[in-house]
Simulated scan of single mutants.
Amino acid sequence: MPRIQGSVVVIAGASSGIGRATAQHLARHGAHLVLASRRAETLEVVRGECERLGADAIAVPTDVTDAAAVRALAEAARARFGRIDVWINNAGVGTVGPFDEVPIEEHEQTIRTNLLGQVNGAHAVLPVFKRQGAGVLINLLSIGTWVPTPYASSYAASKSGLRGFTESLRAELQDRPDLHVCDVFPSVVDTPGLRHGANHTGQKIEVAGPMTSPFEVAETVASLIRRPRDSAVIGVAAWASRLAAAVAPKPLRWAVGVVMKRGLSIGEKGSRARPGEAQGGSAGNLFAPPEDHAVYGGFRKGAAVRIPTKAWMAAAGIIGFWLARRR
C-alpha cells in the first residue's frame, strides 16, 4: 500500500468509533498520524495504541468548531512531518428528539460541529495542499444526506449541507487534478455515537438489524487514500436508501416517519430514560467530550428502544409496491 505507508494523515474525531478504527487501520499500514479530538487523555491512549501498531503518531487536542484551533492542528502536522498528505474530517455529534423539544443551542452545536467543523478542516488544509500540489480531503457524511431523519433533523441538515459543500468544492478544484475531495456515505455504523449524543426522546436508544463495522468504514477510507474518488457508499442499506430517495421520495418519507415514531415508542421494562437523559448528561457530548472512547457502540447487546427490523422490512415492501404500481 504505497500511498498509505509513509503518508501523513490528519484524523479529526480520532478518539472513538470510526475515527479510532481508522487510526488503528492506517497505523498497521505505516502511516504517520496526527490525531485530533477534544479530550487530551483519550487522544494519548489512541496515540499509544497507534505507535504500538507501528505508526509515528502525535496527539493534538482540537475542537473542530474553533477555526483557529483547526489551523493550529494543520500547523502542528506540518511542524512535525513537513507536509500533510491526507486530511480526514470525521468529528460528529447529534441530538435526538422532537425538533421543537430539543433546545435550539443543541441544534446549533450539531450543525456547528458536523458542518462548520468540516468546513474549518477544509479551510485549514487546502492552502497546504495547494502549496504541495497534491492532497486528499476525506469527509464523513451519512445516509441522512439523502434520507429524511425524523427526530434528528439538525443532524440531517448538517450532513445534507456537507454534500452541497463538497460538491461545490470539487467544482472549484476541478482544474487541480491532484487535489481530491472524497465523500464517505456509511449506513448505520455500530459506534458509541448515539450513546454519546443528546437524547430528548424519553427512551434509551438502541438500533436493531444489520449494522456496519467501524473497521469496514476504515477500510473504505484507506481505499480512498490509495485510489481517490468522489464518493464511496458503504453497506446495502445505504445503497437501498439512496435508490429509494431518488425514485420514491414521498413513500420513503412516510415510511421512515412511521418507523422512527414506532421505534421511539418501544422500550423494554426498565429501559426508560428521563427526557433529556443521555450518557454524559442531558446534552451528551455536544458541549463536552465523553469519557467513553470505544470503537464499537455495542448496540446489539443493550435492551432499550429499537428500530424494529420488521418495520424496516414493511417500509421497504410499501415502497416496492408503490414503485410496481407506478410502472
Rank of each mutant, 00 (worst) to 15 (best):
M313T: 06
R300C: 07
I11V: 13
E105P: 13
P2K: 11
N285H: 12
E105T: 10
A91F: 07
S271G: 09
A40S: 15
N285S: 11
H25G: 05
R325D: 01
A288T: 11
E106D: 15
H25A: 13
D66V: 05
L162P: 03
L33P: 00
V188W: 08
G270N: 08
G267P: 04
M211V: 11
P251L: 03
E291P: 07
D63I: 00
A67P: 09
S265I: 08
G48K: 06
A303G: 09
A237Y: 10
K269H: 14
V259F: 02
A91L: 03
L73N: 04
D230E: 15
S15Q: 01
G82V: 04
V96G: 04
A232F: 06
K159E: 05
F165C: 04
A218F: 04
N114M: 02
G317T: 10
G257I: 11
G97Q: 03
L26C: 02
T220M: 05
I225H: 02
A91Y: 00
A304V: 08
L33K: 03
S16W: 04
H196I: 04
R131H: 06
E101H: 07
G197N: 12
G302M: 04
R131C: 04
K204L: 08
A59N: 12
S231P: 03
A238C: 07
D100C: 08
P192R: 02
A72L: 11
S187T: 12
R262G: 08
G164M: 02
R80D: 07
D230R: 15
V64R: 01
V259R: 12
N114W: 01
A55K: 00
S142R: 00
V128I: 14
T95W: 10
I225Q: 14
N285K: 05
D190W: 05
T220A: 15
V188I: 15
V258A: 12
A79D: 10
F321Q: 11
V221L: 13
A324Y: 09
S223F: 07
V181L: 09
D230I: 05
V136L: 12
E106G: 13
G17P: 04
V181S: 08
L140W: 12
D85K: 02
A21Q: 01
D66H: 09
R39M: 03
V46Y: 00
F185G: 02
G92V: 00
G13A: 09
G13P: 01
A244S: 11
D85G: 01
S265D: 08
G263F: 05
R306H: 14
A246L: 12
W254D: 15
G94N: 12
N139Q: 14
S160G: 15
T42I: 09
T62C: 03
S223R: 11
D63M: 15
G202V: 03
I111P: 05
F165V: 03
G284M: 00
T42R: 09
F99I: 14
L126P: 09
A294P: 01
K269Y: 05
